[in-house]
């Protein structure tokens, strides 16, 4: 499903080259529920962006559902992000002038789903994340947890096989955080592959597998029983 081979990533600022990821290799099978943990600045988000086809590694190979990502052009990458990956950002990233419903509809619009069907499906997923009464709220009329749930509904709307979540509960109180984790567990039971970055040990414990990233290297890769 997901396979990364010797991935390195470095950033260049003028003459200054900072390497963030060092020779990362792993495989994640379909239906796994993986938590990535590690100290701040260890490169978790950087790795996640590469997995989400939002960024490209400096070297190494990334094979997603059999496709070698670095060989694809801009538009082909857009297609993959649109239909195969659901990305949940740490900072929600909703469009502020659009209602919850319309935010959820964006990926479907780019996929060419007819408008009437889009509305139905967007409502369906907002219902799943428990926002059936917030269709027409603008992002600034929603709480942090609600915004995160809109972002999750948006990520789910294209029914991607892989769901990537970068600290989805980082900004949320425990009660809301629990609801979202429960939602992920349900989705995982339905067969979605889930990769989640977290600082929270409790959340990590509930995953099937935990990758520990320190200073851009994977120092442990453990299965939970």
């Amino acid at each position: 499903m997901i396979e990364v081979k010797k991935i390195c990533k470095s950033y260049q600022n003028g003459d200054n080259v900072t390497q963030v990821l060092f020779d990362i290799s792993f495989k994640i099978e379909k239906g796994e529920y993986v938590a990535i943990i590690g100290p701040s600045g260890s490169g978790k988000s950087t790795l996640m962006h590469i997995l989400g086809a939002l960024d490209v590694p400096t070297s190494g190979e990334y094979i997603l559902n059999g496709k070698n990502i670095e060989k694809l052009n801009d538009d082909a990458l857009s297609d993959i992000r649109n239909s195969e990956i659901g990305f949940i950002f740490q900072s929600y990233n909703l469009l502020p002038r659009m209602t919850a419903l319309r935010n959820v509809m964006i990926p479907m619009a780019y996929a060419g789903v007819p408008k009437s069907k889009r509305i139905l499906r967007a409502k369906e997923y907002l219902d799943i994340v428990g926002l059936s009464d917030k269709y027409n709220n603008l992002p600034n009329q929603l709480s942090g947890g609600q915004k995160q749930r809109v972002a999750i509904a948006r990520a789910l709307s294209m029914e991607p096989s892989i769901l990537l979540a970068d600290e989805p509960t980082g900004n949320l109180p425990t009660s809301q955080s629990n609801e979202i984790i429960q939602l992920f567990e349900e989705l995982n039971k339905k067969g979605h592959t889930i990769i989640i970055i977290t600082h929270n040990d409790e959340i990590a414990k509930r995953a099937n597998r935990v990758l520990n990233l320190v200073d851009g290297k994977i120092i442990s890769d453990k299965k939970n029983q």
């Binding site: 989400g52 939002l54 801009d74 538009d75 857009s78 297609d79 992000r81 649109n82 239909s83 990305f87 990233n93 469009l95 964006i106 990926p107 780019y110 996929a111 948006r154 294209m158």
Partner: peptide, 16 residues
């Protein structure tokens, strides 16, 4: 810029 980035992240092609 952020909006454009988000749209591309969600599947917008260059033409769109």
């Amino acid at each position: 810029t952020t909006e454009i980035g988000l749209r591309k992240a969600l599947g917008a092609k260059r033409k769109s």
